[in-house]
Design a protein around this nucleic acid. Structure first.
Lengths: 150, 150
DNA sequence: GCCATATATTTGCCTTGACAAATAAACTTA
DNA sequence: TAAGTTTATTTGTCAAGGCAAATATATGGC
């Protein structure tokens, strides 16, 4: 199922967000696969954050990508098995881990960035620079409106 | 987990979409619960479509709310158990079902509309009418760009 | 130092949705 | 009209994420 529907003239915001997000995730995973990377969208986000921000604890990483802590544990299991990252002991906190990229993981950080850039560019290709900024701005404002109830 | 993170200055489009959608779904479900309706977001969408478009087949409904056919079967099971809808035989097509609201289901259609309106209004309260239209337009254009690959 | 509380990680349980296979019925076409 | 193809519904299987409980450790107040 999940055949493309013609999409009625005015879908509500919630539906639009779901559709766009789902399509973006699919495109991203296709692009990753096409680049020879065996990564889910979530795993892509995790590696990208690590590459950008450097080693950090698992819970920190979970907060950064807005993922549940339990789900993070399991994603880390997979990424460790694929040898993209390592769990090291945390220097200051013996409860925590220091998650760091392996050499193999670091080696692909450029590819991740490239995939991401290509997909985002394709997705927004009909939007001008100004419109892209507006889109981002509007989404940010909606998010804040929802979080700061009232 | 899933504590609110401060949300860095420029999250990528994919992340923003996920965040906004998740928050919108949560708000919607809170609002439904506050109105005494025991419905998930998906169930809300199904009932709302039925109320708006009238009886239709399950697969039609699935396409309309962009839900997998198998998932639809199970949601219909739940909604039927809650006595919000009925599976009737389809007049012209013996393979298909005619899904229709029960009296109880129809009685709540106004509440669904109200909940939805309140949440959408709250979510977009900082956007002008023009901006809301732009947001919708941009999302539509991004969706088309992703679907019509290149 | 001791206790209460908060945080980090892991694990189990549950629900959801995607995907695929099975079955039944409709449609196409030769 | 018979064969092949498409569509509708259901069910099984799977991976993912949320939530809660368990365990270990840190932290703050006394």
């Amino acid at each position: 199922m999940n055949t493309q529907s013609p999409l009625s003239a005015t879908e509500s915001l919630g539906v639009m967000l779901s559709l766009v997000r789902a399509e973006l995730v699919r495109s991203m995973e296709d692009e990753l696969a096409a680049s020879g990377l065996d990564l889910s969208y979530t795993q892509f986000l995790i590696l990208k954050k690590l590459a950008k921000l450097g080693p950090m604890s698992a819970s920190n990483l979970a907060r950064t990508v807005e993922l549940d802590g339990g789900a993070m544990t399991r994603q880390l299991d997979q990424l460790e098995r694929k040898d993209y990252l390592r769990r090291c002991p945390h220097e200051q906190d013996r409860r925590a881990l220091r998650i760091e990229l392996t050499e193999a993981g670091a080696a692909q950080s450029q590819q991740l960035t490239d995939c991401s850039a290509r997909v985002l560019e394709a997705a927004q290709r009909s939007l001008s620079e100004t419109e892209r900024n507006q889109l981002h701005d509007y989404l940010t404002r909606v998010l804040h409106a929802l979080r700061d109830k009232n």
